[in-house]
Design a protein around this nucleic acid. Structure first.
Lengths: 199, 199
DNA sequence: TCGCGAGTATGACAAATGTCATATATAAAT
DNA sequence: ATTTATATATGACATTTGTCATACTCGCGA
């Protein structure tokens, strides 16, 4: 019997997935969580065979949780909407055993789980292709600036928050626009988001 | 027996919900679609008791589909992530019989379906409160401009696309910022999105 | 230790953005 | 018929944003 812990912040999906997996006679959902923090506790408590996690969850993200749970016997599988390569790379580094997209047909879930339990690693094909495709070209400081821009802050606010001059901030932005091949702040935010480079 | 058509573009959720509902002895999923167009066809074909739809789907949105399906005997229930009041208001106008959030626990789904079949209307409580809370204060023209801004376009591009001068575009933006109580384009986009006023 | 590249920082300058006063058209209210 | 309100449109002006040349530091390899 494959013992499973599920972590997913969208309650409807959480419940529906639990129902779906419980239908399989070789599987049993032993715990469900709706944030990364609770997921960690449940895994430590129940020592399931596998933990299936979303990425974007409150309190602690699925990737954070995956990194913390590395080393325990429990296999980790990420189940998320995002085909952002940034997330996928980080998941690989965290040593997750599977990465499936919520766009995949539901039948694939049980199949993938069995494969992972059998020792294989399952990654959504769409991701493997584009994976190490593009590195985030921004430096730490530049990222810091872009995050503040995306937060709606203007140059002056950013400058005072980072204790640098407005000239410097504007220069960083200029470099950011250049590196991302765009021409204004709004496009920079769009591009950075679509690449999955935020956070 | 309650006959159900499901429409949801996220395959995993679509399959899981079907499994969940098929577990109820008084319910039967007679068709599933992953876009609004197919959902309409399935409803016309099967004449189910109720059709449960997501909003953001390819080809045709759930709200578009709901508007087209008005009048047929089939009850319509929206099941979506978005608690945006804009969506909710449009759904009410389309005469949907239920509006549930994906954040709600999965048990509520079957319960809500039975209530709707019994003739009641079920709306997520969170929404009813904030519903007619705020009207979108922008005029058509202003919305048009803001959509282009959110698309990353600059003043000159917007001006030439709308056949007005850059001065006019900048004035619209100034009015938009004022109406939304923000001070730059990026904040305007954020605010408009969080209110669910796009589209 | 010299040079090279990368990251950080600045200010001068040019271009884009935001503000404001103003004008016209149109529809509703008096 | 006249006032009032609203949407649309424009240009002058001030501020903010984006570009570019430049400078300093640090670590790395020659």
């Amino acid at each position: 019997m494959i013992r499973i812990v599920l972590a997913e912040d969208q309650r409807m999906l959480l419940g529906a997935l639990a129902a779906l997996l419980d239908l399989e006679e070789d599987m049993q959902v032993v715990g469900t969580a709706s944030n990364g923090e609770d997921a960690i506790k449940l895994v430590q408590l129940h020592k399931p065979d596998i933990c299936i996690m979303d990425i974007e969850m409150p309190v602690k993200s699925g990737l954070d949780a995956a990194e913390e749970l590395k080393g325990l016997g429990t296999k980790i599988m990420i189940l998320t909407t995002f085909s952002r390569s940034g997330y996928f790379e980080r998941a690989l580094k965290a040593g997750v055993d599977g990465y499936l997209l919520k766009d995949s047909p539901s039948e694939e879930l049980a199949t993938s789980i069995r494969s992972i339990i059998a020792g294989r690693r399952i990654y959504a094909a769409e991701l493997v292709d584009e994976a190490y495709g593009e590195e985030n070209p921004l430096t730490e400081r530049e990222k810091e600036v872009l995050v503040l821009i995306a937060d709606g802050k203007n140059t002056k606010e950013i400058a005072s928050q980072l204790y640098i001059t407005t000239g410097t901030v504007r220069n960083y932005i200029s470099v950011i626009l250049d590196k991302l091949h765009v021409t204004n702040r709004i496009e920079a935010i769009m591009r950075f988001k679509e690449k999955g480079w935020f956070k």
